[in-house]
């Protein structure tokens, strides 16, 4: 046994299943993420990546399975436990989901005041610090509509970081961005990984996944059909589904 498996996972999902209208959309998904790891979910659209991520903080309630945060079983029926789960698990969305009526700084500070019960002053200072970290302290007073997509996503990252989450879920954080804005967001995420943040990320950025993932999980039709280190799944000549998917993405990109 290596060292990692002897620790308790930061977040563990066991046998998550979900059906909608009698049709299974997630079947028996399990995942453990340890401190400082980055798990990457890849797979075609409609594979259930986003649904799975949202089951991990119960934005979507799974039908079956259980969640453990630092080894403690979460009962989501208990509102207090559910809120503490969400407070401790950060989330970044594909389309940012900033609060439109609040400035960048207020977007970051509001949950500190409302959920963490910080004073307004401390929350504003902390928000400034987080915006500084993603390079946006000079945009603190602007509203979401006045920011570019990349800037919006960096504010969303600052908003999640300010809560001091134990793990961050990233749901295709660059998919809604213009190509020239992808880089700045990936750079911010890379910086997080370097700082030892634990993350689970759904993405189509294969180069990014290859470089940073501890493990890649390939999903199709609501199931994980392949998993492994990027070095083995994406090894030149490897006959894996992941490799085939990767090759097709590259081919499509060069065809454009």
């Amino acid at each position: 046994m290596n060292e990692a498996t002897q620790q308790t996972p930061v977040l563990e999902a066991r046998n998550i299943g979900k059906s909608l209208g009698g049709r299974p959309i997630l079947s028996d998904l399990s995942l453990s993420v340890y401190k400082g790891e980055m798990k990457v979910l890849i797979g075609p659209s409609g594979a259930g990546k986003s649904t799975f991520l949202q089951c991990l903080n119960h934005l979507i309630t799974p039908d079956t399975g259980e969640l453990l945060l630092n080894g403690e079983r979460i009962s989501p029926a208990n509102k207090g436990e559910l809120r503490s789960l969400r407070e401790r698990v950060g989330m970044i969305f594909q389309d940012f989901n900033l609060f439109d009526h609040l400035t960048a700084q207020e977007n970051v500070s509001i949950a500190l005041v409302k959920v963490k019960k910080m004073s307004r002053r401390d929350a504003s200072l902390r928000a400034m610090m987080e915006l500084e970290r993603v390079g946006l302290s000079r945009r603190a007073g602007l509203y979401p509509a006045e920011l570019s997509g990349g800037q919006k996503q960096r504010v969303a990252i600052a908003r999640a970081l300010a809560m001091d989450p134990e793990v961050i879920l990233l749901d295709e954080p660059t998919s809604a961005l213009d190509p020239e804005l992808v880089g700045e967001v990936l750079a911010a995420i890379r910086e997080l990984a370097r700082g030892g943040m634990t993350m689970i990320m759904a993405t189509h950025q294969m180069d990014f996944a290859r470089a940073l993932a501890t493990e890649i999980l390939f999903m199709e039709k609501g199931a994980i059909i392949e998993r492994g280190a990027p070095a083995s799944l994406l090894a030149p000549g490897a006959k894996t589904r992941t490799q085939a998917f990767f090759a097709r993405l590259v081919a499509e990109e060069s065809a454009c």
Partner: peptide, 15 residues
């Protein structure tokens, strides 16, 4: 109001 903002608020732990 875009439902995404509701999700984001819940995801931060709002009641």
């Amino acid at each position: 109001i875009r439902q995404g903002q509701v999700k984001a608020a819940y995801a931060l732990g709002f009641s």
